[in-house]
Amino acid sequence: MLRDKQPVTITADTHPFLNGLWKQNPVFVMVLGMCPTLAITNSVKNAISMGLATTFVMVASYGMISAIRKLIPKQVRIATFIAIIACGVTVVDFLVKAISIPVYQALGAYIPLIVSNCLTLERAEAYAGKQPVVKSMLDGLGMGLGFALALTCLGMVREVLGAGTFLGFPVFGSRFEPWVLFLLPPGGFISLAMWLLFFAWRKERAAKLAAAEATQ
């Protein structure tokens, strides 16, 4: 429904960075990349790590894709995009392991799965394959950070309710009864639904206000 009202096109007046971060937010507006969104958001730390890893992959690979976009024959563009994205993912895999083993253990199988996140391929196909390098990297940065923002929103709900902590610090004191459900997979679906509901409600209200203003 959200997508019907707002077609996924880049308008000239939107800055590529802000576009991804907010206006066309990959999770809350385009509803892309659902697998990591649901799987890796059981704590704020995991959500931020996953968001940043994805951002890095997107910025680096879109820079490369955009730089060689005019050399890529149409017939093999998907294969080329995937090869470049996969390379970025492998590099991130090594880097995360080098930075922190616990974070690597928490993200586990989901780092390699960045390559199959439809968000990364969608932006390569829709934007980086057609636009100049700087704009493409900005788009990757905006989309990646927008993704990270959305994941953090979900992670916040799930960690605060599911464990009573935020980034590991207790929020409600030690007597809080955690809602285990939110750490389990159904909790991902429930929190995503709550956020989508919230944004839909906000949008509807804004539209109503605008309509009321127009009639005055």
Binding site: W179, V180, L181, F182
Partner: peptide, 10 residues
């Protein structure tokens, strides 16, 4: 079902 998943001990 929600309560059972959220508060399995209680």
């Amino acid at each position: 079902a929600f309560l059972q998943a959220a508060f399995p001990v209680a």
